[in-house]
Design a protein around this nucleic acid. Sequence first.
DNA 1: ACTTGACCTCAAGTCGGCTTGAAGTAGCAC
DNA 2: GTGCTACTTCAAGCCGACTTGAGGTCAAGT
Lengths: 145, 145
Amino acid sequence: MTDLDISEVARRTGVPPSTLRYYEEKGLIASTGRRGLRRQYDPAVLERLALIALGRTAGFSLDEIATMFAPDGQPRIDRQMLAGKADELDRTIRDLSVLRDSLRHAAACPAPSHMECPTFRRLLLDAASGVIAVPRNRKRAPQRS
Amino acid sequence: MTDLDISEVARRTGVPPSTLRYYEEKGLIASTGRRGLRRQYDPAVLERLALIALGRTAGFSLDEIATMFAPDGQPRIDRQMLAGKADELDRTIRDLSVLRDSLRHAAACPAPSHMECPTFRRLLLDAASGVIAVPRNRKRAPQRS
DNA sequence: ACTTGACCTCAAGTCGGCTTGAAGTAGCAC
DNA sequence: GTGCTACTTCAAGCCGACTTGAGGTCAAGT
């Protein structure tokens, strides 16, 4: 009976009620029941929402996240897939590190055009090899703050 | 006259012609001219596309990318903004590292439910503090391969 | 008992990032 | 000079992830 009201979950996570309902509809979270009409949630849903937010930041779709962590909170036993996603993340992290370094450099470097700055170009070219065999069907990661 | 035909750019980057036209329309890239109807591009566009792909992976919108790196290839002189984006990336990278570790652990840990595994929970809770003050208006990062 | 207000459902709308389709055209091969 | 084909434009469509709005419901307070 320590369950949380949907509005409480929204307040504590910053995830709007409409999104919580949407996630429930998608099977990403489950409510423990209703009080009157109102959805009640097990406090564990807070961790689950953190996990979902994390996954979204990583660029995974809601569907992917759903397949990684089943609705009952038991993460999937497909260890191979999980390891694969981890590898994927390793590559993404490498790329983002390059971009971060490039931005940092661009913010500091006095060269008139960064494309003419050897440091910048080298950073970029390092990344390019990985990145330039490109996207299909992925959108942006969710924003913090 | 070493310019590249749009199809050549598409072939070498994996970015479809439709997307190249779209990026041009948005002012993210510029063609050097036409041969007949066909757009021609300076080879530098390849680096620029790498940069764009990188930015998309990082979760930046096309508009943000446009403001970071002006259409002529001169990166913006707003060093403060660039540094800010770099900081943003630092946080994202930290979060992704946690998720990667969590996935890696989940793939290895024999616990029946990972939510009951202390290691997993600790990783998650570390992340939660950062992540759980949540998203607005960001979509997913572009996918590699 | 009744008002209030926060929740509910369900359908439709929005937004970013592209893709698709119809209809047109320029360069090259013959 | 006639095809062929790969490009062109422009408008419309699509997908994921939500949000919004209309109209309904319930329990808690007076």
